[in-house]
Computed example of a mutant assay.
Amino acid sequence: MLTVVDACVREGSGGSPTLVADDDAAFSDADRRAIVRAGGASHGAFLDPPVVRFFTGTAELRNCGHGTLAAQAVLLDRDHARERRAVQRTGGRDVQVTATRLPGGGIEVWFDQGPVTVTEPDSDLGGVLAALGVGDPGRIVVASPGTPRLLIPVADPSVVAPDFARLAAECRERGLLGCLVYRLDGPVALARLFAPVIGVDEDVANANSSGCLAAHLGRRIEVWQGDALGRPSAVFADSDGHTTRVGGVVRLR
């Protein structure tokens, strides 16, 4: 069974189109990547509960936040239940997940992100900033829930216009998944996640990076993404500096 859902919708619309499919032992990884491309989504979740694997059209991912939300929403819907509490196994790690039907429609899903490390960059980032077209940002940190990415505060994320080929090369050289550029606006962060190294120039909703930002700030935050792509999204993330939970609302089509 294969379906596409909208993960991390904002006020009931937008969100990231995410493919959810039952896995099959006969599939090769090339088959899974081809299924994601054919489905017209940037990411796909392949279900063999409790195992879930994630792919883009070009690579397998160690984990995927909004893919986890999509997968668990579909599993709840199949159960015809109001709530689902379960353990998802992804990348060799067990993830606690909770999915709940909302009265007005949609399914809200939360997962425990696990440890997030936040460190100072250990190399010059001039090439990355040049590829992003960003000058004189605020304090940059490296955040990793398993795969490192940069968190870069900027004055206005909407005007950032990366050279994606150069950015992919710079990130690949440093072992980075990508870059989250953001601006804080009270309890909301306006953000964009660029990850051309995994075949996703810009992500509509990157839940793991949102959790990284909450871990960096040590508080709850709502991260708005996707506006530049015409798919407004919202990710909820809450951290006390030690543990981080990430959530969002999934709309079934």
Rank of each mutant, 00 (worst) to 15 (best):
I140P: 02
D240M: 13
R174D: 07
F27H: 15
D203K: 09
D79N: 06
R62Y: 12
G105V: 12
A38H: 11
I152G: 02
R53D: 14
P196R: 02
D156K: 03
S158L: 11
R149W: 09
G91K: 06
P49D: 00
E11Q: 14
V250N: 08
G40W: 02
A25G: 15
T98D: 08
F54I: 08
C8G: 00
G67Y: 07
T3W: 00
V20S: 01
G126V: 02
G135V: 13
A143P: 00
D112M: 02
P187T: 04
G39A: 15
G248N: 03
D79L: 14
L184Y: 03
T68W: 12
A25C: 11
C64Y: 04
V36P: 10
S123R: 13
P121N: 09
L229N: 04
G138V: 02
R183L: 01
A99W: 08
V116S: 01
S158W: 07
D136W: 05
I140L: 05
I152F: 03
R33T: 15
L167M: 08
G126D: 09
D23H: 14
G91E: 01
T18Y: 04
A71S: 15
S123D: 12
R10C: 11
G44L: 03
L167A: 07
R253Y: 09
L217R: 11
V181R: 03
P196I: 02
R174S: 10
D185E: 14
L150S: 10
T68M: 14
L177D: 11
A195E: 08
G247Y: 02
D24N: 15
S158P: 00
H216M: 13
T18D: 08
W224A: 14
V118Y: 04
S239Y: 11
V109C: 12
A81M: 09
S210W: 06
A234Y: 00
V134H: 05
V97E: 06
Q96N: 09
H216G: 00
D48S: 14
T90P: 00
L217E: 11
G135Q: 10
G247P: 04
R53F: 02
T119C: 07
V134G: 02
G104I: 05
G127W: 00
V4S: 00
E60G: 12
L180V: 12
T147C: 01
P196V: 05
V87K: 01
P50I: 06
P17N: 04
T56A: 11
V141Q: 01
V200K: 04
V116Y: 01
E222R: 13
P187L: 05
D29M: 13
